[in-house]
Simulated scan of single mutants.
Amino acid sequence: MKNFQYKMPTKLEFGIGSRNKLVDICKGLNATKVFILTGPNIVKTEIMTSIRSVFDTSDVDYEIYSEIVTDPPIDVVDKTAEILKKSQASVVVAVGGGSVIDTAKTICMLQTHEGSIKDYLFGGIKQVTKPCMPLICLPTTAGSGSEVTASAVITDKHNNIKVSVTHENLIPDVAIIDPELHMSMPQGVTASTGMDALTHAIEAYVSLNANPISDMNALYAIKLIGENLRTAVSNGNNLEARSNMALASTIAAAAFMNGGLGVIHGIAQSMGGVIPISHGLANAMILPYAMKRNFVGNLEKFKNISIALGKNLDGLSLREAALESIEGVFELAKDISLPLNLKDVGFKKEYIPEVIAGTMAYRLLAVNPCKLSAKDVENILLQAFE
């Protein structure tokens, strides 16, 4: 067995109603004032009503800022960081999906670091060197897993790319995983974020950097998603399915933070810079086609994915059993009514060279289970297009 390191510094509070512990957790972080970050849609919902009520019955001062957009661009992050500074808050609480949480991670970092977030993105001129402002995350989707990871993805509109800032100091202090906060997720969001979590789990499991603990979390996440995503999409009021998807999302993220990702995320991140597509949907559409290329890199693990997705492997060879994992992903995507062809979401063939270039520069491509060329990436995109 190879040597490895496994990090999971975020404290998890998991369970129905766990949001009610929020004030006590803020006090444990010595909060003098709390800056609550959310989006313009969530701020109008019962989710925020319940969060407000928790604070209104306490002696902890708070301020709500709700102007966070999907796929936050550099200027929004920088502006929000300045607003946070002026608020004189000492703890940030992020309530939302991946975009809100990623924004929260970056503005917490900019409280202790000078400059623009652009300076700290991959390839930038500055490095994260100091601890960040304390951050508590309450995810309202089950997909990104950003509440336990070290990365935040930001949109560089000038260069039409999505770029990440990654450092362990960005890892949130506390994640409150309350499945009741997921109950109002629309079907489409439930489907795409659920497939995002599945992509995290599969890429982490087959990564060259995987380890026994990340494997354990990733494979269990795959099983939970295979058993619960269809129900969560078709009946959003099923609290057990929502709970299982919430857990799957978090442990899949913990797996990829330690095990790594691969070509699927490289392509999806690059695609997000050229067309307006959610990260989860981009991952979902590329996932089975990339698996077709990657399965030969670890037949045994792809066979285990097949089993986790509930496929019957009786009488099959190892190669045939591994291929069933791809069929399992196709079936799941069809059952939850996700598009399977890039042309259905506005992607054009002329975008392919730009996406290939972005993918080949992706920092985690090195731990993909197969060494890939630009031609391999092109073939994956062409299959997904047709």
Rank of each mutant, 00 (worst) to 15 (best):
L84Y: 11
T166N: 11
N20G: 00
T190P: 02
G194E: 11
T49M: 12
A175M: 08
S66E: 14
M271C: 07
S18V: 07
I117L: 05
Q5N: 09
R52C: 15
A361L: 15
K2T: 04
V206M: 10
A308R: 04
S337W: 07
A175T: 03
N379M: 14
E386F: 12
Q111R: 09
K118S: 03
G226Q: 04
F302H: 14
N159S: 10
D78L: 10
T199G: 00
V377A: 14
L342V: 02
M195R: 02
K348R: 14
K85Y: 14
Q111N: 13
N244E: 11
R230L: 09
K130V: 02
S234I: 08
A241C: 03
V77S: 01
A254F: 10
C108V: 00
V377L: 15
V329K: 03
L323W: 09
E331T: 06
E300H: 13
N304V: 00
V92C: 09
M216C: 13
N244F: 12
T359K: 11
E114M: 10
E227T: 01
V174A: 05
M133C: 04
L313H: 00
T155R: 06
T10R: 08
V377T: 09
V95T: 05
Y289W: 09
G98P: 01
I275C: 08
T45V: 11
A357W: 05
G273R: 05
V153F: 06
N235I: 05
A252Q: 06
L37A: 03
T45I: 13
A246M: 15
S243T: 14
K130H: 11
V100C: 06
I101R: 05
N20H: 12
A201S: 10
S58Q: 08
N258I: 02
